[in-house]
């Protein structure tokens, strides 16, 4: 994996060419003198660390400043949209890790009733789902709008890549939630078992008690039973909630699956994409030519007819003139 960096050689030559060129057109380039000097500085700076080929983006402010120096106009508005979706995804990712922690905590046996944990899980998953929803809506908007074929291609690709990210994220979330759900259900089954046991104990004690007087459950047993009932109701509600959010995610997933590229298929080939772009461009070009031709033909025909009519009118005028005079 050998590589060779020819940047230094290139820059050296570029600088010599420029120094030759500047005196000739010094007055013309006076206005652009500022950025040029800046560029030279950055280039020197960069050439000093070229020996170990380091990423430009992390430590080098050069690119952005240099591009600002001579590019007019801002990036199109969809770039903002895509950036926002990207930050949303980032935020959702952070929340996901929080959610994982909360899940683990909620499933741990604890002395408290764990309500706080559950509330946290609820809010977190609701937030994540909302973020995903929002991003999805934005994503759909991304492809709308006009532009040249290249521009719309870029937009389509951005959309695809964000869709893939979103889909992975929502899959991840769903997997986590269903795992949580499963374990929650398991725990509940455990509770049911306890319930049964209590009932069993209760009936047994009732049998024993029958001999004496009809007291029913003892006070302590009653409260325990109530508490268990309460807990299981709570759990059920929770399960419902998680299930509904799973459903919602499934919807998002379905919407996204149209956009995501299947790996290993022909659509995933780089050359295929280039070819199809080329053919669509070619087709467009043909259509354009055709349109031009028909237009031209139309123009020519009207022109000819106008001329013929004019000829006729002139002829009539000429005849009238001959007759009158």
């Amino acid at each position: 994996m050998a590589t060779r960096n020819r940047t230094v050689e290139f820059r050296k030559y570029r600088d010599t060419v420029k120094s030759l060129r500047t005196p000739l057109s010094s007055s013309a380039s006076a206005s652009s003198g500022g950025p040029v000097i800046e560029m030279v500085n950055t280039s020197l700076l960069r050439s000093s660390n070229r020996s170990s080929y380091t990423p430009l983006s992390t430590q080098d402010p050069g690119p952005s400043s240099s591009s600002d120096a001579f590019t007019v106009g801002l990036p199109p508005s969809w770039v903002d949209d895509s950036e926002e979706i990207a930050t949303n995804i980032q935020r959702a990712k952070v929340k996901m890790s929080e959610l994982t922690k909360a899940h683990a905590k909620a499933l741990m046996p604890s002395f408290g009733d764990g309500k706080d944990d559950q509330r946290q899980i609820e809010t977190l998953s609701r937030e994540i789902t909302a973020l995903l929803r929002k991003s999805e809506v934005r994503l759909k908007k991304l492809s709308a709008g006009r532009g040249s074929s290249e521009e719309s291609n870029v937009r389509k690709n951005v959309q695809r890549s964000l869709a893939t990210d979103l889909q992975n994220l929502s899959m991840d979330l769903r997997r986590k939630q269903s795992a949580y759900l499963k374990r929650l259900q398991k725990q509940q089954e455990g509770y049911d078992g306890i319930d049964l046991e209590i009932n069993f104990n209760g009936s047994k004690s009732r049998l024993q008690d029958d001999g004496f007087d009809d007291v029913g459950f003892s006070e302590a047993q009653m409260t325990k039973l109530k508490k268990n009932e309460h807990i299981s109701a709570e759990r059920e509600r929770e399960i419902d909630q998680v299930a509904s959010s799973v459903h919602e995610l499934a919807q998002i997933m379905k919407d996204l699956s149209v956009l995501v590229i299947d790996q290993g298929t022909i659509v995933d080939r780089i050359d295929y994409n280039i070819q199809s772009v080329a053919t669509t461009v070619e087709e467009g070009f043909k259509q354009l030519q055709k349109a031009e031709r028909t237009q031209k033909k139309g123009g020519m025909i009207t022109c000819a007819t106008v001329l013929v009519i004019m000829c006729f009118v002139m002829l009539v005028l000429l005849i009238i003139k001959e007759i009158i005079f």
Partner: peptide, 14 residues
Amino acid sequence: SQSELLQKEVFLVE
């Protein structure tokens, strides 16, 4: 592959 390119933020191939 195209999807790998998209992951690397390459949004146009020409």
